[in-house]
């Protein structure tokens, strides 16, 4: 039974170029202990999807215009639609049921408060504990995410920590109220590879220990291969393909997934320098999407039909979402 099921979620933004739809009827489900990787290039709508699930879309200019975000703590519970909650009601869910980690720890931590204050803030809001028990729990959390010397670091300000340590502090903040669902939006993109490896290992360990459902957003197929059980590929606001990690990597069906996978450079021994495989053209701006398939102008298999009709989720009957009329 999924802990989170999202049905045809649609988010729009009013821009100077008109109304755009960065999240276009996205459906997904997440189980406890499972990691869903969301891959896409910039402008694909993956971060807007995360913010929509958290109901953190700034309004105006943004608005969630349709769909459901159903959360169910236990199988016996009736599902709660996050989109139907009042602002106050949603605030009580954030941090406690669903939490989020952002890409750039320096801009998402408050420079004027110690990391201890910031990790403890959610505890004070949700659990209303007294100061000494908050401090005790904060120390536990700092230790849990592997920041050395918690007693000393609890009083450190963000600028006193390295990028990797700041990201650990962000993770501790997100985990402070034992959320069931963790959304991580490019949590390792700003980090060096050796530090990225540490953070990925940490997140996998914590997910296992705390039995959370995780949605991991990234543009890096390497990271997805390491961390995800299932993968969702987004392009220009839509999910174009989803499946298990194995299906996506060994048997990609959508031309975009195929092109993207072959464009990812792989570290290997080769006799000489090699040309990289490329995808012609660029991602269309969301304000100027073509009619029909969003990928049509870059697609090697494009036909007349792709330029006329909206593509349903699985027109070829593959048994999973592959938004292409001519997927084989």
């Amino acid at each position: 039974m999924p802990i989170l099921s999202v049905e045809k979620l649609q988010t729009q933004l009013a821009t100077s170029e008109g109304l755009i739809t960065p999240v276009d009827e996205v459906s997904l489900s997440l189980k406890r202990g499972e990691t869903l990787g969301v891959v896409g290039e910039s402008g694909s709508g993956k971060s807007m999807l995360a913010l929509s699930l958290m109901r953190l879309i700034p309004n105006p200019p943004g608005r969630i215009v349709g769909g459901k975000v159903l959360y169910r703590h236990d199988e016996a519970d009736d599902p709660i639609d996050f989109l139907k909650l009042s602002d106050e009601g949603m605030r009580k869910r954030r941090g406690k049921n669903i939490a989020m980690i952002f890409q750039e720890p320096m801009t998402s931590l408050n420079p004027l408060y110690t990391i201890g204050d910031q990790i403890g803030e959610a505890l004070a809001i949700h659990d209303g504990k007294d100061r000494s028990s908050i401090r005790g729990r904060t120390l536990e959390l700092i230790d849990l995410v592997g920041i050395p010397d918690p007693k000393h670091r609890i009083d450190a300000y963000p600028h006193e920590l390295s990028g990797g340590m700041r990201q650990r502090a962000m993770i501790a903040m997100a985990l402070s109220c034992n959320p069931d669902i963790l959304i991580a939006d490019e949590p390792t993109t700003a980090l060096d590879v050796t530090i990225q490896a540490q953070i990925l290992e940490l997140m996998q360990r914590l997910q296992r220990e705390l039995h959370m459902a995780m949605m991991f957003i990234t543009h890096d197929f390497g990271v997805v291969a390491e961390i995800a059980d299932r993968v969702m590929v987004m392009y220009a606001g839509q999910v174009v393909e989803s499946g298990t990690t194995k299906e996506i990597f060994s048997n990609p069906k959508h031309p975009y997934t195929q092109a993207l996978l072959s464009a990812v450079p792989v570290l290997e021994v080769r006799p000489d320098r090699m040309k990289l495989t490329t995808i012609p053209g660029t991602v269309p701006p969301l304000s100027k999407l073509p009619q029909g398939c969003h990928f049509q102008d870059r697609c090697p298999k494009v036909q007349q039909k792709c330029r006329k009709e909206e593509v349903p989720e699985d027109p070829c009957g593959i048994g999973r979402l592959v938004r292409c009329f001519y997927a084989r």
């Binding site: 990225q196 390497g222 990271v223 997805v224 390491e226 194995k246 990597f249 060994s250 570290l267």
Partner: peptide, 14 residues
């Protein structure tokens, strides 16, 4: 070595 081994490889079976 450490740099090489830290790079995530886009092959899940790997």
């Amino acid at each position: 070595h450490a740099l090489v081994s830290a790079i995530p490889i886009p092959k899940p079976e790997h």
